[in-house]
Design a protein around this nucleic acid. Structure first.
Length: 310
DNA sequence: AATGGTCAAGCAGAA
DNA sequence: TTCTGCTTGACCATT
């Protein structure tokens, strides 16, 4: 498979948003692609209900993608609840797997035909560098089923359609942790490994851009998170850190994350908290990366930002 | 129908 | 040693 580089308004970076579309979520009936279930429901209703939720999530994903296209949004992070409890079964085991695969294929076709970029971001308990083997196995499984979804969507095995994780811990020894992370990456299937990206953390003790580039940048592209950089700057300016992360992407347009501290917007919050809106994405970042805007107001923050910037 | 406590997964750091 | 924050709802038992 060749890497797909979309033609698009290249003078404008693609700006994206994550998971929930609030506008569509408020419709009646609500549209969303993150229906999940709690343990008791999983235990009582099992894979039949998981298949039902997956069908509804994929049907709504198609409508979310359509809404995005109508609103000139070409970058979207899809929820990790797309197929709930997928750690417990293979996609092929789902009742009506064929119908689910068809829905996914429609979504993927829409993404390709509109030159969209779609990514995933497994949750914080995905710890590929854990000291606990069972945790590493669970984390490998998580990355694999995200890759299975991208295969089902028929999107290329490239960080263009990335699966983004954090290392997210140091276990008191960064060098050893980096080695375990590299070992875990080597255990992934090729389809999962080719899509993996890694992001800088939001705590001083954890992983900065230069540390990630040094530790894993040769094989795993580094996503630069602008907001997180202030906690792990290691003396680098935002721009220097991004330029360093950029070197890990080869011919693929980098992904960067952008958000502003809630505190800047008047909220009484911890420094790491994201604001509901963003005032402006730096031009140098927009020009060189597809920018995922992580803001509480989701797609509304994106539309507001674009209206203000243009 | 409305309510409020709880929710699969891992870690760091504060309490 | 235990609790809280991750993102911010959504789920579910109870009323």
């Amino acid at each position: 498979m060749e890497w797909y580089i979309p033609l698009g308004p290249l003078e404008l970076a693609m700006l994206g948003y994550a998971c929930m579309n609030r506008t569509l979520r408020e419709r009646e009936p609500p549209l969303r692609c993150n229906r999940g279930m709690q343990r008791k429901t999983w235990e009582s209703r099992g894979i039949e209900y998981a298949a039902e939720l997956a069908r509804r999530n994929l049907a709504d994903l198609y409508e979310i993608l359509q809404w995005n296209a109508e609103n000139d949004i070409y970058f979207y992070r899809c929820s990790s609840d797309l197929v709930p409890w997928n750690s417990q079964f293979d996609l092929e085991d789902l009742p009506d797997y064929g119908g689910i695969a068809d829905l996914a294929a429609d979504c993927g076709e829409f993404v390709r035909e509109h030159g969209m970029r779609l990514t995933f971001h497994p949750a914080h308990w995905c710890k590929l560098a854990s000291e606990t083997e069972s945790t590493v196995e669970n984390s490998l499984t998580a990355v694999e089923y995200h890759a299975d979804w991208l295969d089902l969507l028929d999107l290329d095995r490239s960080p263009y359609y990335g699966i983004n994780v954090h290392i997210g811990a140091t276990y008191g020894d960064k060098a050893a942790t980096a080695e375990r992370f590299r070992d875990a990456v080597a255990r992934l299937s090729p389809g999962a490994r080719k899509r993996l990206t890694v992001e800088n953390d939001d705590k001083a003790s954890l992983w900065s851009v230069p540390e990630l580039v040094e530790a894993v940048g040769e094989t795993v592209p580094v996503v630069f998170d602008y907001h997180h950089h202030q906690f792990t700057d290691r003396g680098l300016t935002y721009r220097a850190a991004f330029d360093l992360a950029r070197t890990t992407w080869g011919d693929i347009r980098p992904v960067a994350h952008y958000s502003e501290p809630a505190r800047l917007h008047g909220a009484d919050a911890r420094p790491q908290a994201h604001a509901d809106y963003a005032a402006a994405v730096p031009a140098w970042l927009r020009e060189a990366a597809d920018v995922m805007v992580e803001a509480g107001a989701k797609e509304r923050a994106l539309l507001a930002l674009r209206a203000g910037a243009d």
